[in-house]
């Protein structure tokens, strides 16, 4: 006997077009066993539908724990997780229909089965009819360039192809939310590009919500609309990507390139110099742009030939490193 849901009442109506966040995490805490350490400490996040959300943090920060709780694989000590308004614990079956996931370190699919068999298996497991699963599997395998090799065992595929099958299995039921835990780990440049292309397509063309964890900041910077950084189980930043970058832009960094070497005594305080193949790059942060002019004047006095002067925008890696190295505040 199947039951159609009432619109989630205590929260909001599910769906990308509504105001309900696709992913909502509130007060999430996880303590393993009798440990006093909180692997996840009162984490709250809200991811609007259609967003590509980057969830970043150093190893052991609590990213995978959070994702596993979100996926219903791990019980939280306290707090709630909702997927399109469905509580993962209380309305598990409905919540499970909201997402597909590729988990880090896991094979995700059966290596002794072929790509085709895997997709049909997971499609039917997710409640699809066989004909529907076949049609969708064909569409995905053709789209991912695996159609010609669909009958081969996944175990014989390259790492990139295996990851493609894992992503295809996560997408087989066309879920509105996709959780990708380190989807590009171990992939070569081309395969990483492919994954990034999928994510972009999923989000921009299909309106999917994507929650992505990765250590590759270029991937995040290129794809993510919003970024949260977790450290020691606590979320220490949760902003739109450009806002996060602009916050760090306050401490502007400048870079001056000159021909030849520069004696150390000519280097102003707070600046560093790096010589490489006949040029020297002087860089440092300034609180007042006048300091840059003073530096240039000083270089001119020494008859240095200035090749370029540029304001260095912080990239996400700088921001990330700045955040995770900053002293913790409770």
């Amino acid at each position: 006997m199947s039951t159609q849901t009432q619109a989630p009442s205590s929260h909001e109506r599910p769906g990308a077009a509504s105001a309900t966040p696709a992913i909502e995490i509130s007060g999430l805490t996880k303590i393993y066993g009798s440990s006093e350490t909180k692997s996840v400490d009162d984490v709250s996040l809200s991811v609007p539908a259609g967003t590509v959300f980057g969830f970043l943090g150093p190893n052991g920060a609590g990213k995978t724990t959070t994702i596993k709780i979100l996926a219903g694989l791990l019980a939280a000590t306290s707090g709630h997780t909702l997927l399109n308004g469905y509580d993962v614990t209380r309305r598990r079956s409905a919540a499970m229909q909201q997402f597909g996931a590729v988990l880090e370190g896991s094979r995700n699919v059966y290596w002794n089965l072929s790509a085709w068999q895997n997709l049909l298996y997971f499609g039917r497991l997710k409640g699809m009819r066989t004909a529907e699963a076949r049609s969708r599997a064909e569409e995905l395998l053709k789209g991912l360039g695996l159609w010609e090799r669909r009958s081969e065992s996944v175990g014989g595929y390259s790492r990139g192809m295996q990851q493609k099958v894992a992503v295809a299995a996560a997408l087989i039921a066309d879920p509105p939310i996709v959780l990708l835990d380190e989807p590009t780990i171990g992939l070569d440049v081309e395969a990483t590009r492919t994954v990034m292309e999928w994510v972009r397509t999923l989000s921009r063309d299909r309106g999917k919500t994507v929650l992505l964890t990765t250590h590759q900041m270029n991937v995040v910077e290129e794809l993510c609309d919003r970024v949260a950084v977790i450290r020691e189980g606590k979320v220490i930043a949760d902003l739109r990507t450009e806002e996060l970058l602009s916050q760090f832009r306050e401490r502007d960094k400048y870079e001056v390139r000159i021909e030849g070497d520069l004696p150390d005594e000519a280097l102003p305080d707070g600046f560093t110099a790096k010589a490489h193949e006949g040029t020297t790059t002087i860089s440092g942060r300034v609180s007042d742009p006048q300091e840059v002019y003073a530096l240039v004047d000083r270089l001119r006095d020494r008859r240095a030939v200035v090749q370029s002067l540029a304001q260095v925008q912080p990239d996400l890696e700088d921001v990330f490193m700045g955040l995770i190295k900053a002293p913790a505040h409770d």
């Binding site: 006997m1 199947s2 039951t3 159609q4 849901t5 599910p14 769906g15 990308a16 077009a17 509504s18 539908a49 259609g50 399109n84 469905y86 309305r91 079956s93 409905a94 229909q97 909201q98 039917r124 497991l125 409640g127 009819r129 066989t130 969708r136 569409e139 995905l140 053709k142 789209g143 991912l144 360039g145 997408l171 066309d174 879920p175 509105p176 492919t194 292309e197 999928w198 397509t201 999923l202 063309d205 299909r206 309106g207 999917k208 919500t209």
Partner: peptide, 28 residues
């Protein structure tokens, strides 16, 4: 070039089965 062909948009499912049908169990 890898593409994902759009199908009907299912990003906002209208009605979700809270519990699978008996036939879904059987299929599983």
């Amino acid at each position: 070039m890898t593409t994902l062909t759009p199908t009907a948009d299912r990003s906002a499912p209208a009605a979700i089965a809270e519990r699978p049908h008996a036939s879904t169990y059987l299929n599983g």
